[in-house]
Design a protein around this nucleic acid. Structure first.
Lengths: 188, 188, 188, 188
DNA sequence: TATGAATGAGCGTTCATTCAT
DNA sequence: CATGAATGAACGCTCATTCAT
């Protein structure tokens, strides 16, 4: 496999296990099964993996959303599909998201974060735009709604996955509450 | 002033300025105007200030909410007051929140995080419970609603404050959009 | 009890448990049940307890020897009594002796060590002198013999006590071998 | 030269000069002419050089003994050669021996000490065994005799070298006294 | 005398980064 | 491209010592 890709994958795992301070480049390269020096052929510094992870996350979120949400389903069904997508990706990246977020904000990568999420927000905004055209969702700036929807859904997913005690029943309840919450928040 | 308190205050400022990796204990003690060793009389390690900061944040959020929200106002007014409170505290702690969050999750302090927020959630849940009794808010578990409301509002506030380009107009728009979003999400 | 005495006693125990580098003044004062500052009312520095311990050890060795060795016993019996005495004291101070020794040599206390042992050696030399007068021990400088006897006996005792696996049978064997060894080495 | 070897050599010198507490890793690496971090590629901690030094000492003692003691010499001559060997090595390591000994006992390295000396004792025991076969040395466990002989001789050598006032005349007297002492102790 | 909170110089150790192979 | 031994600056933490009470 492509070495750059292996580094990113390994970094995600190590960050998840050891947190932001606890992660050493040596851990990443060990997991990626490459040499210490090879890391620096692909990334100029330890923290510069962060934007790459963030991008991967955002891209994956976008794709998963696109894959889950079926245009033929009615809008409330699509809403649920969107929720499923966000939960799925959040579960995969668990608290890595937070770490990456913190890692980005501590360095000078904040701008990149905005860029990375722009496309995701646009994608969701477009979806909401279609619901508005079909008369299901109230009139409001779809971009603004997209940000609120994504933020809320990620927050709800984190509440389920972030803590040790993961509980599948709790996950279903949370999704259901979120679905009703969002339907009400958005509908005409 | 109490040394422990001075450490926490100083830590908040330094974390805000320098991020999680960039913060040295020596920075904190310099700002707190205490000796290096004194730090370790109050906290066993650098990262163990994190839960203390988190607690301070949660406590302040709770108090600010209590202070802002006037029982004599109608429920939608109270909702706006709650939003104002969350925005105010988020503004004060800006990205420190994220750092603290990351710091907590990387070490073994996740449990403490739950404990810390429990009281805040209960406080908001109680407020929502009253709105339900008055017939303004739909029937649903007030605790669950509280978590969604707090998560959403924090997320919305972060979107405004976290990035370099703070814009007061954008702040007002975001609050207004959030208000409508929440009113719809909650109401009967 | 006298505080100075309590400090020395506590120091012996802590040195035994934690070694020379691992011993902190705070450990000593905790065990001595006095305050941190009180230590410095009796000793000017951490390492200055060392000579005091050494003196205590040498004094105790001298007294124990005097107590064990009965003039009315025949010389070989007295030799065994001397061996018993050295073993007894070595057991009590176990490897502390080595630590104290190292502690003395690392600082500028070596001279004091010589002074401390002078009296002990004189005491043993006197005993050997009597054996010579009685015609049991060969002609040789009693001081020189005393040093060899003490050195050998301490070394033999350390071989028994210093390592984790203390074995009472092994102790008896070692004493017996040492007795024969010394009897031959000394006798006419 | 091999880096590990350079560290050990440098450590011996620095321990000799500065004692156990006074020795900083930075001193060792400066003398070894390697970087600070390189030290930790070869030893996990500062104190873990101790067993390596001990091993070097024991190995050197064994080799020196083997080199000095000529099988063609009569047994009393061999005894003297053995004494010379122990004195020579003790002189080279002077008080380092004590420090290493203390360093080993303070940490959890006591076991290793036993292992390290096992081979040396076996070597001396073998020599004594031959003397027994030739009828020069009394019947007794050669291993036990070896331990007493080595302990006594080291102790005697330390009495000569350990203190500031080294005196070559005193050294010769001590050796002579030791020779007679040992000859008597061992002979048939 | 006795206390113990406070001090701060100093050290062991780590780990991102480099570079000769 | 890949390696991994070597580097050394930097930092968390310790702990002997002090001093106001």
């Amino acid at each position: 496999m492509d070495k750059r890709e292996r580094i990113i994958r390994a970094a995600v795992e190590v960050f998840r296990d050891k947190g932001i301070e606890g992660t050493k480049v040596s851990d990443i390269v060990r997991k990626a099964e490459i040499a210490q020096g090879t890391f620096y052929l692909y990334f100029p510094s330890k923290l510069s993996v962060m934007p790459a992870i963030a991008e991967r996350m955002a891209r994956q979120l976008e794709e998963t959303a696109r894959r889950h949400v079926k245009p033929e389903t009615d809008w409330e069904g699509q809403l649920l599909q969107l929720i499923d997508a966000v939960f799925e990706v959040t579960a995969e990246y668990r608290d890595v998201a937070t770490l990456v977020y913190a890692g980005l904000s501590s360095t000078e990568h904040v701008r990149e974060w905005e860029d990375i999420y722009t496309s995701l927000y646009a994608s969701i905004a477009e979806m909401i735009g279609r619901w508005q055209e079909e008369g299901h969702v109230r009139t409001a700036d779809p971009s603004a709604l997209a940000r609120l929807v994504v933020g809320l859904t990620e927050s709800a997913a984190e509440q389920v996955y972030l803590y040790d005690a993961y509980d599948p029943v709790r996950e279903q309840e949370q999704k259901e509450e979120l679905r009703v919450f969002l339907r009400n928040a958005l509908r005409e």
